[in-house]
Amino acid sequence: MNYKILSFALLLVVAGTIFFWPNDEKKIKGNLNSLAKYCSSIKEESVIGTLQKAALAAKLCTDPCTVQIESLKIDREFRQKELTDRFLMMKKRLPNTGFSFHDTVIEIAGDDRAEVITTLRLNGKTIDEQFTDAYELNILVEKKDGDWLFSSFSVVEFMKK
């Protein structure tokens, strides 16, 4: 009887360890969630808090990091300092806006490269009403010194007005 209980407990521990073990996919997803958290601006965020979040968001990216946004005619590499400034500008421009990633598909392409296809959703509030915006993103991720960092962001433009 005791042997059965012990076996079952052992099986649970093994299954739990496998389930909760931080594999590469979970680490990348975790970084995406952190990026969303740092980009989001909540009401009454302090100046220091905003600065810290912008810097932390940039630290999740490689130095340099490529950004492609066809509609804004942006297609170049950004150094980490410039990325921090851009994140800061974005947070100032989009106060009370929440960022979140949905329908995320992660493909690990080797030991140190991965590709992410995801939908970035913005939920915010302008002066008089609530707004929602969504963008399809292709993100490249590279493993540097054990950390998965975002090396390229590309907005997929699939709608032609």
Partner: peptide, 18 residues
């Protein structure tokens, strides 16, 4: 919801496979 300007709203022609 078409309250935003045309530039900001995301709409248009898409491939059926999407």
């Amino acid at each position: 919801n078409r309250g935003t300007s045309m530039d900001r709203h995301r709409f248009g022609e898409i491939n059926m496979n999407r």
